[in-house]
Simulated scan of single mutants.
Amino acid sequence: MSSAPAQPMNLPAGAQTATVAAGCFWGVEHMFRRQFEKKGLYDARVGYIGGDIENPGYRAVCSGRTGHAEALQVIYDPNQVSYRTLLEFFYRMHDPTTENRQGPDVGTQYRSAIFYHDAEQEKVARDVTDKVNKQWWKGSVATEILPLGKWWDAEQYHQMYQDNNPGGYECPSHFLRKFPPIAE
């Protein structure tokens, strides 16, 4: 079973999208949904980005040979939650210091990355990354900052996986770290 290209959604005017990769996408989606459910989140979906083949499927991506990352797209209301806030949460909820790895999950599909949608997102991503690298992660951030490429929705059974499979696999690197606010 293969994935499908992202389908346009009926979203409220002004909705924006953030795309991040932080290891196993099940836990990333679950944490973002819990954190922002009533704070501006319209939707979140898991999928694949950054690879070399068209129409990747889960098994192919998990092989590590397609170059895709397991990723999350967050569709949000920028009047309720800022892109900066989403990225700060991203850096709190996973370990961005290991290249191509989150806990026991190893491979390029588990890399830490921010895929920006426009020049403003790139600017914010670089600024936030620079600050958390200096203030929280002490110079060890390995997160890639890349332009958005082609996004592929993951198969339906991966969407809201942890909600639909309570007690299923959770990456031990996915938990909320308690860092002080970022100093401007």
Rank of each mutant, 00 (worst) to 15 (best):
34 R>M: 12
92 R>G: 10
61 V>M: 11
50 G>Q: 05
50 G>M: 11
97 T>A: 07
5 P>F: 13
45 R>L: 14
26 W>K: 06
34 R>V: 13
14 G>Q: 05
39 K>F: 01
16 Q>W: 05
38 K>S: 14
31 M>W: 00
86 L>N: 08
16 Q>K: 15
50 G>C: 09
88 E>S: 07
74 V>Y: 09
43 D>R: 13
32 F>S: 11
70 E>V: 07
42 Y>K: 03
45 R>N: 10
44 A>Y: 00
40 G>C: 06
26 W>I: 09
24 C>E: 02
71 A>Q: 09
85 T>D: 13
66 T>V: 03
91 Y>H: 01
63 S>D: 12
81 V>Y: 02
47 G>A: 08
101 R>I: 04
94 H>T: 11
59 R>G: 00
84 R>Q: 14
96 P>Q: 09
82 S>E: 01
101 R>D: 06
39 K>M: 07
32 F>C: 11
17 T>K: 14
39 K>T: 01
31 M>C: 01
77 D>W: 02
101 R>F: 00
48 Y>M: 08
40 G>E: 03
80 Q>N: 09
54 E>F: 06
40 G>F: 01
63 S>V: 10
49 I>W: 04
10 N>K: 15
4 A>F: 14
83 Y>A: 02
91 Y>T: 07
75 I>L: 14
7 Q>M: 13
87 L>H: 05
24 C>N: 08
96 P>E: 11
22 A>F: 07
66 T>A: 04
35 Q>A: 15
17 T>A: 15
